[in-house]
Design a protein around this nucleic acid. Structure first.
Length: 542
RNA sequence: GCGCCCGUAGCUCAAUCGGAUAGAGCAACAGCCUUCUAAGCUGUAGGUUAGUGGUUCGAGUCCACUCGGGCGUACCA
């Protein structure tokens, strides 16, 4: 559709030189009175040409040569918009296209041949995933999905560190609980991991080893068992949401493979690091940041910056064209350092897209629940998924722009989950499936022979919405905004429900009924494909 | 103090990288099931887009400041 407009503009630019620059937008009109597409070129050019937008618009229109079978009218409106009205016979053709492509309708090869890496969740194995991790997990997975829809080959990566201070505390915590189980009197420090799961792990250790580990180092069997158990649980939690990473990258590998030393040497050679107070500093001020930061502490241990930079460099080595990182807003001060480091090593930081999501405020019975893994004050993601189901969790975290400070009312989610818009979409899908079951007994089937009979408002608006699906996917993928897909699907479902109410199938004249069935199937296809991207099921019955 | 994010109907949020009359859902009120699923549809009501100024054909969107909230501001990650 837009392609056609661009085509006739290209032809017209032979007559009007100023059209050659193409710095204008074509937009789908919000208001049906404004046609199908609106163009603002006349207003953009107004200043440059020192002419009134309305005059420019008139001039453009008179030099456009178009096919009357495709465009029915072109009008000037408002301050100088050029509005295009497409013919019904052209509009309905999208149904054939959708039926033809089926499950792959909406996919594009915009980025085919390119490799992308999406890194998400990346929680260290110190405890179960909480509702707070849910947003990161779901949005990351959905971004990975949509990148595949626009042609990328996608790796889904989980980066973790099983060597840091947090993990030491974890080992200490388990050992102490173990000693407690053996009957020793212990003082359990406040800054140790308070959760019940620590006791469960200690119990497992005791069952396996009895009391033989009294002198075992906390970092030995205790920590290893804890890591293994917790990771298993995390993977189960993710599986319950249909999230599967295909790469788990252990920070330790960076040390084992010499990446850390190599980076340190490289930075030193480039004179981008220096020693001060027994620590090694990165000259971030020379890389456009506010202040220099420590990369190796006086103790000899690196800070997180060094491995983070080295880690991202491995992604470049692995040949990705696009690297997406999902972080909570608590990381918003750390990633610029990493990007600066990447740039210092001669890589293009533009290939890294950092998606920062704001925190989810959990409300329960009107109270804000402050989450902390260490303090064991949390609601696990698993509990939530078991309570409301994977579809609701995935939809809920996807439906809001990641930049919003989202409120999650647990009581509402649990007791009134049928108010969730995801059911509205699924219901539309189920209704269509129901019709299709019903017509098996009637003497009607799907046909695109008489699509010209689809002339009612409810029909045409639905068709026009279907037509926007591909563009919506591409825009969502470019902007990394998954909530757009939700918004689109809700609008689509709404138009379908209106169509359903006002345009009967069974009982209508045969040619019309068959055309409407083809429209219903096309709608079903788009809803299903959209839900597929979101990782939400499309039920045949509800 | 400084940096990033946010502030839109009573509540939860949209608004096509500056577009035309700011839209949905929930809650409220009034209607629609002997016909394809009422988890639906129709209608009513609800707004100085936190505030003030600026940029221009045009601002919820961009800029400056103010107010209010979130997250940071480590030789923690």
């Amino acid at each position: 559709m837009k392609e056609y407009i661009k085509l006739i503009f290209d032809e017209a630019s032979n007559k009007l030189d100023y059209l050659k620059e193409h710095t204008f937008n074509l937009e789908v009109s919000k208001n049906p009175d404004h046609g199908d597409l609106s163009c603002n070129v006349a207003m953009i050019l107004s200043k440059k040409l020192k002419k009134k937008p309305l005059e420019i618009a008139a001039e453009i229109i008179s030099s456009l040569d178009y096919d009357n079978n495709i465009i029915s009218d072109i009008k000037i409106a408002g301050p100088g918009f050029i509005n295009f009205y497409f013919t019904n016979q052209f509009t309905v053709k999208v149904i054939e296209d959708i039926l033809d492509k089926g499950d792959s309708y909406g996919k594009s090869n915009l980025y085919s041949g390119k490799k992308a890496n999406v890194e998400y969740v990346s929680a260290n194995p110190t405890g179960p995933l909480t509702v707070g991790h849910g947003r990161n997990a779901v949005v990351g997975d959905t971004i990975a999905n949509i990148l595949e829809w626009v042609g990328y080959t996608v790796d889904r990566e989980y980066y973790f560190n099983n060597a840091g201070r947090q993990m030491r505390v974890l080992g200490d915590s388990v050992k102490l609980r173990y000693l407690e189980l053996l009957g020793e009197k212990i003082e359990f420090p406040e800054d140790y991991y308070q959760g019940e799961y620590i006791k469960d792990i200690a119990q497992k250790v005791k069952n396996k080893y009895g009391d033989s580990l009294k002198k075992e180092e906390p970092e030995g069997i205790f920590k290893q068992t804890a890591e293994k158990e917790i990771f298993e649980e995390i993977k189960t939690t993710l599986t319950n949401l249909n999230i599967h990473h295909n790469i788990f990258y252990n920070e330790k590998a960076l040390y084992d493979e010499g990446k850390i030393d190599a980076l340190l040497n490289s930075l030193k050679e480039k004179n981008l690091s220096y020693e001060k107070d027994n620590a090694i500093w990165l000259k971030l001020t020379e890389l456009g940041c506010e202040q220099d930061k420590v990369i190796v502490k006086a103790t000899g241990e690196p800070t997180y910056r060094l491995p983070d930079i080295a880690y991202h460099l491995t992604k470049f080595e692995r040949g990705y064209d696009l690297m997406v990182d999902l972080f909570g807003s608590d990381h918003n001060a750390t990633y610029p350092d990493v990007l600066a480091g990447i740039k210092a090593e001669g890589k293009d930081p533009e290939k890294v897209k950092v998606v920062i999501h704001q925190f989810v405020t959990i409300m329960d019975k009107g109270e804000i629940v402050k989450m902390s893994t260490r303090k064991a004050n949390y609601i696990t993601l698993d509990e939530l998924t078991n309570e409301v189901g994977s579809d609701v969790v995935r939809y809920f975290f996807n439906m809001r722009n990641v930049s919003t400070h989202m409120n999650f009312d647990l009581a509402l989610a649990k007791t009134q989950s049928d108010e969730n818009p995801v059911f509205y979409l699924q219901y539309a899908h189920a209704r269509i499936c129901s019709i299709l079951r019903m017509i098996e007994n009637e003497n009607i089937k799907s046909s695109t022979e008489h699509l010209e009979l689809l002339v009612k408002d409810e029909e045409l608006q639905l068709i026009k919405k279907l037509r926007q699906f591909g563009e919506e996917i591409e825009l969502s993928a470019k902007l990394f905004e998954m909530n757009r897909i939700c918004n689109y699907l809700e609008e689509l479902a709404s138009l379908f429900h209106k169509f359903y109410t006002f345009c009967r199938i069974i009982g209508s004249e045969k040619d019309l009924a068959e055309a409407r069935i083809s429209l219903a199937i096309a709608t079903k296809t788009v809803i299903k494909n959209g839900l597929q991207i979101l990782g939400v099921t499309a039920p045949e019955k509800m």
